[in-house]
Write a protein that binds this DNA or RNA. Structure first.
Lengths: 152, 152
DNA sequence: ACCCTCCGTGGACGCGATCGACCGGAGCCT
DNA sequence: AGGCTCCGGTCGATCGCGTCCACGGAGGGT
């Protein structure tokens, strides 16, 4: 993870479809060298995936909600997690410090679907309560932040 | 936005670096046809960007926090937004229904940096109070959900 | 029936991806 | 110091892909 790797990561966070030749030009190496570096970044887990970012409304997911989950004292956290994992509407799942063990970001098409999702969440064993906030608009999301050279 | 467009979007959400030739094979069209369709999806705003998804720890961003913001009654929402936009640590910003006008997802390297961020947020004009939750672990994030054919 | 438009195919050509061979510097052992 | 080895790079060649262009068929309007 030297300065060149950091540049590559930053370039690919900005545009995942850059060609190796273009990356090579930007960082001042040859294309095969860049190819090898990117391969290593992928297999070492630094780069996890390349994703197209899609306007959610365009694919029928106009409603975004953030849902806090309070666990039952008796519940098994892993089971709860597994249940959440089965619900495709839950795009992100954070295990949190605080009273609410989980914070979920969910996207659905309509408020009715959100209602159904919340009901399902409330009913899952191990869930004591839920608290839902609706996003009226998304100002920005997953904006990549510039990489500043770490202490190492 | 027909079935083929939806397939293309879904394929690119799974792997943004698929070649046009590969996409063409998957959807049963020629490469130039796919090229044109993807170009239209981009320029019509359905596809907003292609991003490499990076392990945050690997680039020195090991701390994730979700921060709710309550606005001053007198404040100007747009000004507050603009201030938030200048803070690179804020990766996502949702305008919410409820007491807390904004929900921010922020990533920083250390708890000390989070503290500084919270201080800056609290001090920005128009912000009445903040409420911060720390993510102990990210179970998953921005998982693409399968597209089911919309009513249209 | 005719034409127009849209959206696709096929062909061609230049560039990019990718492999293998080679090279130079760093670190280490003798 | 000399030489070995390893790592990570360049160079060159080959093959497939991206991309431009001309052409063609389907569908709708007149």
């Amino acid at each position: 993870m030297d300065a060149i790797d950091r540049s590559l990561v930053e370039l690919l966070r900005g545009n995942a479809r850059l060609s190796y030749a273009e990356l090579a030009r930007q960082v001042g190496l040859s294309a095969p060298a860049v190819h090898e570096r990117v391969g290593k970044l992928e297999s070492s887990g630094v780069i996890r995936a390349y994703r197209a970012e899609v306007e959610p409304e365009a694919i029928g997911l106009g409603v975004t909600a953030l849902i806090g989950i309070v666990e039952d004292s008796g519940g098994d956290t892993d089971d709860v997690l597994e249940t959440f994992r089965q619900m495709p509407e839950i795009e992100s799942c954070y295990f949190m410090a605080g009273v609410e063990s989980f914070l979920l970001k969910a996207r659905v098409g309509t408020i009715a679907e959100l209602e159904q999702l919340i009901v399902r969440l409330s009913r899952t064993p191990g869930v004591a309560s839920t608290r839902t906030g609706i996003a009226l608009s998304t100002k920005w999301e997953n904006r990549p932040q510039p990489i500043d050279p770490p202490a190492s």
